[in-house]
């Protein structure tokens, strides 16, 4: 695979894989108002990276495991009603971020370029990462396809869906694990701090042009794909960091969505 020997092509393929998976997942993050939860999970990535270095395992796997644990912890904490969800999220987000930075700085025997983890690094995408992104990405998409309808039902109205026999707890847990996975996969592309942007901004930008949930997911994918191309070429051209470049491209689509006229038949109240 000579094509994939080139770092730019590896970056492009990695970015495309992520954008395709992030579209439908991101829509649910937006619909379920979980943007801050995504943030909290991605902030825990740094702790995952530290663990990965410490145990010498694949960093994506390590980040996935830590993010999944944080997700489950959040899920359990949210079942008690005394503390507000945002307070719990904020606490866990910053606790895990601080813990991650601390752990990395204590491991003096390895040199870690913190900036590349925080904001992404196209140079660091390897062929093995591509296999992981496409392999796991396929699994995420297949699972999403399988749970799409019931997840949509509990997202529209959980009480009603449960009364009609949809099991909400397992669906929520599965969805959180999928988010943990995409966060781990996207880390190298856009960086720990900007992963959530890849999930929520394409979906948000797609809203005005969508009449159905599925349309919104497809448009979010298209916006994500276009932004990966624009972002990476900007990054190459102007020597800017890849993650922020991609995110800024998505944000441009977001603002464009306000300027472009929305389809007439669909007026939001």
């Amino acid at each position: 695979m000579t094509l994939l020997d080139d770092f730019l092509w590896r970056a492009i393929f990695a970015g495309l894989g992520i954008a395709i998976v992030a579209g439908p997942l991101g829509c649910f993050v937006v619909w379920r108002r979980m943007a801050y939860l995504g943030d909290t999970m991605s902030h825990s990535s740094l702790l995952g990276i530290a663990m990965g270095f410490l145990l010498q395992i694949n960093l994506i796997l390590a980040v996935f495991v830590v993010a999944a644990l944080v997700a489950i912890l959040l899920f359990l904490l949210q079942r008690q009603k005394q503390l507000a969800a945002d307070a719990i999220l904020g606490t866990l987000a910053h606790a895990s971020l601080a813990l991650g930075v601390l752990a990395i700085s204590l491991m003096t025997w390895i040199r870690v370029d913190l900036m590349s983890f925080l904001f992404g690094d196209i140079l660091s995408v390897e062929i093995s990462d591509l296999y992981l992104i496409y392999g796991s990405g396929l699994i995420v998409l297949l699972v999403m396809l399988k749970i799409w309808k019931p997840l949509l039902a509990i997202t529209a109205n959980e009480e009603l869906a449960r009364a009609e026999g949809i099991p909400s707890v397992p669906l929520q847990l599965i969805f959180m694990l999928l988010i943990a996975l995409i966060i781990a996969l996207a880390m190298k592309i856009v960086g720990v701090l900007l992963v959530t942007a890849l999930l929520i901004i394409p979906a948000t930008a797609a809203r005005r042009f969508s009449k159905t949930p599925e349309q919104m997911a497809v448009i979010a994918v298209l916006i994500g794909v276009a932004s990966v191309f624009i972002g990476l070429f900007t990054s190459l051209e102007f020597d800017t960091p890849s993650g922020p470049s991609i995110v800024i491209s998505i944000v441009l689509f977001f603002f464009l969505s306000f300027i472009l006229p929305a389809p007439k038949t669909y007026v939001l109240r």
Binding site: V30, W31, R33, K149, P150, L152, A153, T155, A156, N157, L160, A161, E164, G165, I166, T204, R207, S210, K211, T212, P213, Q215, M216, Y266, L268, R269
Partner: peptide, 18 residues
């Protein structure tokens, strides 16, 4: 029943949610 406007749903779609 509050349905968040960020989720594009038609009357037809609501009918077949579950």
């Amino acid at each position: 029943i509050h349905i968040d406007p960020v989720l594009p749903l038609s009357v037809n779609r609501i009918m077949t949610l579950t």
